[in-house]
Design a protein around this nucleic acid. Structure first.
Lengths: 193, 193
DNA sequence: AGTATTTCTTAACTTTTGTTAATGAAAAGC
DNA sequence: GCTTTTCATTAACAAAAGTTAAGAAATACT
């Protein structure tokens, strides 16, 4: 019913060096929560207390700025995400996470996390591995903005994140690329002709 | 003469939870290397074997793209940096690091790092802390690109990284912002009037 | 000190993006 | 099934950025 098999599989794939038995303990410490489409999984404005694993559904991460919102990214089945910075550094969270579809989310609570690390210091290996893999993803995104034009960014996403186009409307993709929906529409026309 | 006092201070400030004695061992494992202005500290195109601490001078990080180069960032005294992703995941390095001024760099070699972690597993705490602090920096940069216009990015840098403007020519700052030097010049004019 | 190089600015022109508004198509809600 | 809302496209115009080139100012080098 509520077995964390999928999470365990993804934890294993990280190759953190932590034993299978311990990874099971870790996975079991992440209870399942369900969210309806549109619900907020983590709000901005306060210190976050938990991070997530997407078991089913799709999560949108966005920033609010002067009453406007900017979509930063989407996370699908198998993804680790959440307001890590707010939770780890106890800062006010700026990253809003919302269920973009009906979602099954496994959550890792800060206190649970700390107690796991205290009991079993080799979970620090897992922590390093997760942080470093997020770091690698972010480095790609930064390079994406620094060295690609909006058109190249769009083509990059088509090639590298095709699932995005099956599940997310175009105006959110425009936002991720850093342009308006109207501009993306024009870019698509330029490519087609 | 060659004591790693400054590095030790910065390691301590990370508040990783690792004891002062062990941090000293860690700092001593990072030998000092000197680079002349313009020299390459880490090249692209091969798997990186070490990461850095800037003890003196200024390091530029850049990407090559179709014979063009894009400046991504600068690191000054007290900064941890280097081709972490290449070193940790054994991938071909894309991030070029060069001495932008004459530099004193302390280097952490991959094998040394691994042996420190093996001997003293609590260095994993340090590893997590460093990875998470880089993650926080990168998250800011992504937000910087997603939600600011070029002019707002320029104003953000003036406010938050004034040392940049004392030590780095403007065309490199334009590159970091994601625009051409000509455009930055126009933005400066718009702000002045 | 004098020359060469780098850096910044400005101009003119092209290309791209933002903005606003209107239209039609598709999807969601009841 | 019908209405409402969301979404993508297009047009027209304004604003901003890219490109190329030229010139001035600052810097580096010998």
């Amino acid at each position: 019913m509520d077995t964390p098999d999928f999470l365990l599989q993804k934890l294993t794939e990280l190759n953190s060096g932590v034993s299978a038995v311990l990874l099971e303990d870790f996975a079991r410490a992440m209870p399942l929560k369900k969210f309806r489409k549109g619900e907020t999984i983590a709000p901005a404005g306060k210190v976050a207390s938990e991070v997530f694993f997407v078991e089913k559904g799709c999560v949108r991460m966005l920033y609010y700025l002067e009453s406007k919102e900017v979509t930063a990214s989407f996370f699908f089945e198998g993804g680790f995400t959440g307001p890590c910075i707010s939770m780890m550094f106890k800062t006010i969270n700026q990253q809003v996470f919302e269920a973009f579809e009906d979602c099954h989310i496994r959550t890792l609570n800060f206190d649970t996390y700390m107690s796991l690390l205290r009991q079993q210091p080799c979970f620090y290996q897992l922590r390093s591995t997760i942080a470093e893999s997020i770091m690698a993803d972010q480095e790609l995104i930064i390079r994406f903005f620094l060295s690609f034009t909006p058109m190249e960014r769009y083509q990059y996403l088509i090639k590298n994140q095709p699932q995005l186009f099956m599940r997310v409307p175009q105006h959110h993709i425009a936002s991720m690329i850093g342009i308006t929906p109207v501009s993306l529409s024009r870019i698509r026309k330029r490519i087609a002709c």
